[in-house]
Structures are given as C-alpha cells and as structure tokens.
Design a protein around this nucleic acid. Structure first.
Lengths: 171, 171
DNA sequence: GACCCTTTCTTGAAGTTTAAACAAAAGCGG
DNA sequence: CCGCTTTTGTTTAAACTTCAAGAAAGGGTC
C-alpha cells in the first residue's frame, strides 16, 4: 500500500495552480502599474524617480541628515553601484552633498542639503496623496494590516544573506 | 457646537500614520527585493530580465503564439515604446519575430518563435521555483488569497483610463 | 476625395540600471 | 610590520527605460 498521499514527483516542477497564477498576475500587474504611477508622479512634481525620492527621505529621517553610502544602500535595498550613480545625480541637482568620513578614509557620507530638504517639504504632500489614492484609500484596515504582514514576510525571505537559509539542513 | 468629529483641515496633507508607514515601507522593500531577485534569476538562467520573460509568456499563452503590439503592451502594463525596444531585443535573440497584420497595415504582430518557446520550456521550471521560494512557500493559503484581492484592487485603481474616476462628481 | 483627428508603432536622445573590474583603506593572522 | 582577505565606494560600458517627436495608416465628416 502506498503511504504517500500524493505522487510528489521529486523533479517535476511544481507549477502554479490556477488560483496561484491569478494571485501572481495580480501582484505583477499592480506592482508594475504602481511603480510606474509613482515614478511619473514624482518625475513630474519633484523632478526625480521614485527611488531617488526614497533616498532623500531616508537621509531626512537620519541623524544629522546623513548616512554612509553602504548603509543608505542597505536601507534602500539597492546596490552600492546604483547608489553611487544616484547620488552623483542628486549631487548635481544640489539636493545631496558628499562628505568624507573622518574615522574611515574609504567612507563617504551622503548628506541632504537644505535645498534637498526644501524639495522634500514642497513635494511630500503630493506624494503622500498619490500613495493614499493608489493604495490606502482603496483598502480596508484589515487589508492594510494583511498587506504589511505579507510583504514583511516576503522581504525577510529575500534579505541579502539569506541564500539557502531556508534549507539549513543542507549546509 | 461643532458637528465635525475631526478638525479635518481641508488643505493640510493627510500624512501616513505610523502603522501605514510601516506597511508602505514593507511593501516598497519587498517589491524592490523581489523584482531584483527575479531579474537576477532570469538574467542568469534565461538571459533576459523579468519583464522580457513575461512578454514571452504572454505570447506563449496566446492563440497562434502571437499578439498585436498594442495588445501585448496593454497586457504587460508597459508602454508601446518600451515594448518596441524590448521586442527588438528579443527579435535579435531569435525568440520573437514580427509579422505584418494583414487587416491593418499599421499593425504588427509579435510572434513567439520555436526557439523562444524552447527557451521558455527550458527555463520555466526554475522560474516557478524561484517564485514559489520567494512568495508562495512563505505565505499561508489565506495570505495568498488576501494578497490576490489586495493587488487586484490596487491594479484596478491604476488601470489606464482611470484618471479621476474616483472623483466622478467632478466630471 | 479632402480634411482632420486618432491610432499604431517606431525612433533617437537622454537618463537610469546593471555587471564587472578596480583602487584604496581597513582588518586580521601570523 | 607583512601579507592576505574583506570592505568601501567608484567607474566604465552595455543594457534598459523614458520621453518627445514623428511617419504611416485608419476612420470619420463634409
């Protein structure tokens, strides 16, 4: 008698079920549309893409409005290379300036300038509004809570340094 | 006596609450990490970014493995311009070919080639696996369902042609 | 048909991102 | 202190995306 309730072919790919496919498609579509929408909104109103705006926000929230490059990259979930380019551009706009780190001669601080802070002050209301309209105003409190939990789980699973962490018995 | 339960300053921006901020940050982080992760996975295993892979999938699902450019762009939620460039690249790879539309001389079909189909066949298992590992394997069935509903709502709200559709009384 | 507006798709340039390679400083083990 | 590895941040070129502009055909209306 077969004790396995399901054939479970070890090497046959576990395709997504019809329901899973619908979920996945909804996710991809919403994520694409949303990022696109916010990129356009911010490009129009603040003259920069969403990611760059996020960098300014992180800096504004940080003590002395500054962060080490690597730290900023980690917070924003982007590569240091990408950050280097981004900061170069923001520097050209006068919204960020670089400063040497005194304790580590390799290190650089990205510092939010007054001008950069002013751009944030002026454009934040419009951006919050866009986010509300696109997301929060459309979801019930329960859905908002749910979304937070779900995305936190996904993010944690993808955090750098997680390679194979879900298969610890193989290490 | 003031009948308004809350001051509700008409022009003061409705900032996100602390809870909303956490939800929003989780979303941004997960979306960034996830797209990045899948881009890398597909670039490594299939030689193309996630969006391009999605285009091939749409074509594979379509009758006669072909779609009009505009239709494909609409399905994939990208601009026609972006699609033009993308198809040009995929064409260079031999995975897609263009065909004139007989009934509309402006029109073009994007057609999945056998070679393109073969790439999909070979790389789909790995990709499904990556999606499962990053998303579905980490969520309960209820969370999966919830995610689908939430993202469907968000996507619908951003569907092109929705400009001001949430303020119908202004039209 | 002539006119005008729309739709379809492409193009080129500018901006952004990625991947790989690199220089410089830090950290570590002897 | 020396040699080795790691960390930090940048740079280059190639790939990708966006934006604005434009060519070409379609779809009216008169």
């Amino acid at each position: 008698m077969n004790t396995a309730p399901i054939p479970a072919p070890a090497d046959e790919p576990r395709w997504l079920t019809a329901e899973e496919q619908l979920v996945w498609r909804s996710y991809i579509e919403a994520a694409t549309l949303l990022e696109d929408h916010l990129d356009r909104q911010l490009q129009r109103d603040a003259g920069m893409p969403h990611v760059y705006y996020g960098l300014l926000v992180k800096l504004a929230e940080s003590p002395r409005r500054r962060l080490r490059m690597t730290e900023l990259a980690r917070y924003a979930k982007i590569t240091r290379s990408r950050l280097s380019h981004a900061i170069a551009r923001l520097e050209k706009n006068g919204w960020v300036r670089r400063e040497d780190c005194p304790s580590d001669k390799r290190g650089q601080f990205a510092v939010l300038t007054d001008e950069g802070h002013e751009v944030l002050r002026r454009t934040a209301p419009g951006h919050v509004n866009a986010v509300r309209q696109a997301v929060f105003d459309r979801l019930t409190p329960e859905q908002q809570k749910s979304l937070g939990e779900i995305m936190r789980i996904v993010a944690e699973g993808l955090e750098p340094g997680e390679t194979g962490a879900d298969l610890p018995w193989l290490r």
